[in-house]
Design a binder for these strands. Structure first.
Length: 589
DNA sequence: GCCGTTTTCGGCCCGACTGTTTTCAGTCG
């Protein structure tokens, strides 16, 4: 079973517990939901954790769930799960994917109308609702019946829980709503929060916080948003709408003097907030978006905070950058004021993965702008150096001699340009394919023309982890091969990427002075943040590159820096924060 | 069922909103 299936199994077990006895199984439900979240967020198959005997390193997986997983991988089933799911009709579970359906509602409807077939249950329920039978049920009414019909219709259209947005897209949607909100005179401040503020690689829905002394007016203004499809809910302090394209926008408000606690609350993550509140409880403090209550104060008066810094300080913590608020150790370190100083965009001194339009007759796509145009942009960004890494010339269409001459010609062009442009230094690189057998696409004699090579996988992605790891390590073995570009090959929302044995890759890179790339392209963000964290811990260096094919794409560097920050990388972990001389020494190392 | 510079036992975040109710259950974040 793969991660998706196992996460679903855990969620179904949690739902079954909810239906059986929500109070009795309260903490088991939370535990299984948390385990499901852990599994669905993994970038490695959980079967590999089982094989490596490292299941106990995963948060939310303790002795019991671990033994259930071991039973699952050994025998293909788990007796305890079969017992837990035995009394629950299978038709309940597909309904749980529909927004507004929880275990209780799904179970009641399935039971009441004796729905048996999980494959047709959604359509069956729709017919029943259309026939007006749900409104007659106790606890339901005409409104809930029509809400069910709409929920099913929207679910079919893929609204609500659609594919997640890339960061620039989400930022654009959020910016439009924020600038609309700011048209209201009652909006003092408006900020996008949630996963967008934490810079998660993809964003599900858009969360916006508003500081106002008149929440009612602000919410009326919000629900009148011209691009809204419908209002999902509208209360006194919060509201949600669905906008065209099926994306959900959640709004929360607080008065300006309590905006700090709202920023904290609505930025999340959920796991960070839960841990933070448990931590504060032990100090006798109860936290919410309203502020902080001292439990020793019998009247439970709320202390308000206008800034996040003051809010964290009141709990005895240093301010935590949003990118690392994932409950992976940040609270413990903030308590002793030992958070790392994360790398910043202004630390970056160069970009090493640039495709110019120089006619190198490459194996893959060519850049759109000339070497000179790219250099102008680099100057505008304040860079000290730029690395040109066009794809290697196609090996099926050229002889080695032709390739040699093409690279030589590019080098001469660069030298010529350099004689007229002294402000930005240039590194002569090449993005070189690692062939399926691990050889590089160009030979040693040609590699010697370069300051260094960026190597990467562009074909035959479907190799297993063992073979792919051997392929990559062999590709990196040449002296000139210094950087592994987009190391997992993933494309967000498109393909998962191949698997590598990271401990072997790290060991090789560390011993041989090789670096892994963080590719800033918003559809890649590769390395993924969790692997950046492993890389940092392994003491292996990284380079943040844009992989630009046009000069304006060099602005995408910020996305790579955000990934690095989510992986707890400091300036020391990132090689292109070095000066030109230091970086060029590393290339020769 | 998980977890640990107060604990290997005894804790487990905190609130909003809706529909169907007349005080609350269910869902969501």
């Amino acid at each position: 079973m793969n991660n998706t299936e196992i996460a679903r199994l855990f969620r179904n077990v949690a739902a079954a517990y909810s239906i059986k006895d929500e109070r009795k199984f309260r903490f088991q439900i939370i535990a299984y939901q948390k385990a499901a979240d852990t599994v669905s967020n993994l970038t490695t198959e959980i079967g590999d954790f089982y094989k490596n005997n490292t299941l106990d390193t995963l948060p939310g997986i303790g002795v019991t769930i671990r033994s259930h997983l071991e039973e699952l991988f050994k025998t293909g089933k788990v007796i305890h799960f079969e017992w837990a799911l035995k009394d629950i009709p299978k038709a309940v579970f597909p309904l749980l994917d529909i927004p507004s359906f929880g275990p209780k509602k799904a179970y009641k409807l399935v039971k009441e109308f004796k729905l048996k077939n999980p494959d047709t249950v959604i359509g069956d329920l729709e017919k029943i609702a259309k026939a007006g039978k749900i409104a007659k049920l106790e606890g339901f009414g005409a409104k809930s019946q029509s809400d069910i019909l709409r929920a099913i219709a929207e679910f079919r259209l893929g609204k609500g829980k659609t594919t997640r947005m890339t960061l620039p897209y989400a930022a654009e949607v959020a910016d439009r709503v924020v600038s609309y909100l700011k048209q209201s005179e009652y909006v003092v401040e408006a900020e996008p929060l949630g996963s967008l503020r934490r810079k998660v690689s993809t964003v599900g829905d858009i969360d916006i916080a508003v500081a106002t002394n008149n929440p009612k007016e602000v919410i009326s203004h919000f629900t009148a948003y011209p691009h809204k499809e419908r209002v999902i809910e509208k209360g006194e302090a919060t509201s949600s709408i669905l906008v065209s394209g099926g994306k959900q926008i959640d709004l929360m408000t607080q008065p300006p003097n309590a905006f700090g606690s709202l920023l904290q609350h609505f930025t999340g993550s959920k796991n960070h907030n839960v841990h933070l509140r448990e931590y504060a409880l032990k100090k006798g403090l109860s936290l919410s978006e309203y502020g902080i209550k001292k439990l020793s104060d019998k009247k439970l008066k709320i202390q308000k905070y206008d800034s996040e810094e003051k809010f964290y300080k009141a709990i005895g913590l240093s301010w935590i950058p949003p990118e690392i608020r994932e409950d992976t150790g940040e609270i413990e370190l903030a308590a002793v004021n030992k958070l790392p100083k994360l790398v910043e965009l202004s630390d970056i001194k160069g970009d090493l993965h640039i495709h110019s339009s120089f006619s190198i007759e490459p194996s893959h796509d060519l850049g759109r702008n000339t070497i000179s145009e790219m250099l102008v942009k680099a100057g505008n960004l304040g860079y000290e150096y730029l690395g040109f890494s066009e794809h290697n010339p196609s090996i099926s269409k050229h002889t080695p001699t032709q390739i040699y001459n093409l690279i030589k010609k590019r080098n001469e062009d660069i030298e010529h340009i350099l004689s007229n442009n002294k402000s930005v230094r240039i590194l002569k690189l090449l993005e070189t394919d690692i062939l399926p057998n691990g050889d590089l696409a160009i030979d040693n004699k040609i590699l010697e023309l370069l300051d260094g090579a960026i190597v990467s996988i562009h074909s035959v992605f479907n190799m297993n982890s063992v073979d792919m790891t051997k392929r990559v390590i062999k590709g990196l073995s040449h002296k000139k091969a210094k950087i592994l570009a987009h190391p997992t090959g993933r494309m967000l929302n498109e393909r998962a990427g191949y698997e590598l044995d990271w401990s072997k890759i790290f060991e090789f890179c560390k011993r041989n002075n090789k670096a892994l790339e963080i590719n800033s392209w918003p559809g890649r963000l590769d390395l993924p943040d969790v692997i950046v964290r492993l890389t940092v811990n392994a003491g292996v260096k990284m380079v943040i590159n844009t992989d630009s094919h046009m000069s304006e794409q060099m602005d995408l560097m910020k996305y790579g820096v955000e990934v690095a920050r989510r992986g707890w990388a400091t300036k020391d972990d990132i090689l292109n924060t070095l000066s030109y001389n230091e970086f060029s020494d590393w290339l020769k190392s």
